[in-house]
Simulated scan of single mutants.
Amino acid sequence: MSLYAPKLWQIPAVSEAEAAQQPAKEQVLAARLQEIAERFPQAVFASSLAVEDMIITDQIARLKLPLRIITLNTGKLNPETAALIDETDSRYRIRIEVFRPDAQAADAFEQEYGSAAMYESVELRRRCCHIRKIEPLNRALAGAPAWLTGQRQSQSETRSGLDFEEHDGARGITKFNPIFDWEDGDVWAYAQAHQVPLNALYRQGYPSIGCEPCTRPVKEGESIRAGRWWWENKDTKECGLHK
């Protein structure tokens, strides 16, 4: 038995250089979001409530852009994540649209495979993700002219090829990643400068936060995505939302 607990990931300290670059990064982000809003009024921003998404929400609210903000309550969120929805609504005086899985489909899956099915195989985990995340997102995006995410290239190897604008072939609409080229320091510099609301789990060693059964804290020095679906290999660590 270990005599000490491993040191967990911590919110990175913002350097003077990163703080100095923050206003310029913010200007670029504002221009990108304004471009999206002009080209695609009522585009949908799908927020996971991660720090990246809170930054984009902060900008949408500041600029009063006509973009819908939605989130997915999968029914498996940590209480800290669920609480952030109401906190964000209150802070920005907006209403995040909450989409939930089809209750009958979610119950049927658990009755057949059990509540721990996601650990049994990649196939079952992805079926769970489809019910709880992909199907609700498809409903949220029905009729939308475009959608936005908070994904970044440096988050993982599976996201290294991201661009600002992409075509979502599965849904037949345009997809934007407004902070695709931001580094960790850029993210935390903005969050600090504007004191954006943050998920309390960030201060408990969680750099990347998903559903409660599929997320855990990571050790200092590990990849920020190491706590997502940690029992799988790195090439399968996506839920299918961004295929």
Rank of each mutant, 00 (worst) to 15 (best):
M1E: 13
M1L: 08
P12W: 02
V14E: 06
A17P: 03
E18P: 15
E18T: 15
Q21D: 09
K25L: 05
Q34C: 06
P41W: 06
S48M: 07
A50K: 01
V51M: 08
D53W: 08
A61K: 12
L63S: 10
T71Y: 00
L72G: 01
K76Y: 01
L77Q: 05
A82G: 02
I85H: 10
E87Y: 11
T88M: 05
T88Y: 09
R91K: 07
Y92Q: 09
R93L: 05
I94S: 00
R95N: 11
R95H: 12
E97Y: 03
V98I: 14
D102M: 02
A103E: 15
Q104A: 03
D107N: 11
D107S: 06
F109G: 02
F109S: 03
Q111E: 14
Q111I: 14
E112P: 07
R125E: 07
C128M: 06
C128H: 10
I131H: 04
K133L: 05
K133G: 06
I134Y: 00
N138L: 02
A142W: 08
T149S: 07
G150Q: 10
G150S: 11
R152E: 08
R152S: 07
T158Q: 12
G161S: 04
L162D: 13
F164Q: 12
F164L: 11
E166L: 15
H167Q: 04
D168A: 05
A170P: 10
R171G: 01
G172I: 06
K175S: 04
K175M: 05
F176A: 04
F176T: 10
N177W: 12
I179Y: 09
F180K: 15
V187A: 01
Y190N: 12
A193F: 13
H194M: 00
N199L: 01
R203F: 11
C211P: 04
E220G: 03
E220P: 07
E220V: 13
R225V: 05
R228V: 09
W229Q: 03
W230K: 08
E232I: 12
K234V: 10
K234D: 03
K237Q: 04
H242S: 07
K243C: 04
